[in-house]
């Protein structure tokens, strides 16, 4: 039961992300859609490197790292 309770924080965050994504698609003048925000962010070199580093690290962490701990 406790596991469900604490894991729920991630479910709520996922719900917030999906709700934001849907709302921004319906009201793009109020909240810019995620794709538009990403295109805007990727103009900057530092943002590009940071975003790709995060993406890559997820794959590395779950599959690539040779000696996981």
């Amino acid at each position: 039961m406790s596991t469900t309770y604490f894991a729920l924080s991630y479910v709520l965050l996922a719900f917030a992300a999906v709700a934001t994504w849907v709302y921004s698609r319906l009201r793009p003048l109020r909240i810019a859609p995620f794709g538009q925000l990403l295109r805007h962010m990727m103009i900057s070199r530092v943002n590009r490197i940071a975003v790709f580093a995060i993406w890559w690290w997820v794959g590395w962490h779950f599959f690539g790292q040779p000696f996981p701990n």
Partner: peptide, 26 residues
């Protein structure tokens, strides 16, 4: 991805700023 920033300063809109703030918070 190392190439220079294509545009030095791009105008941000209120919608972009709001979106940025929400995703940053999440």
């Amino acid at each position: 991805m190392w190439r220079s920033d294509s545009i030095s300063e791009v105008e941000s809109t209120p919608a972009l700023r709001r979106s940025s703030m929400i995703w940053f918070t999440i």
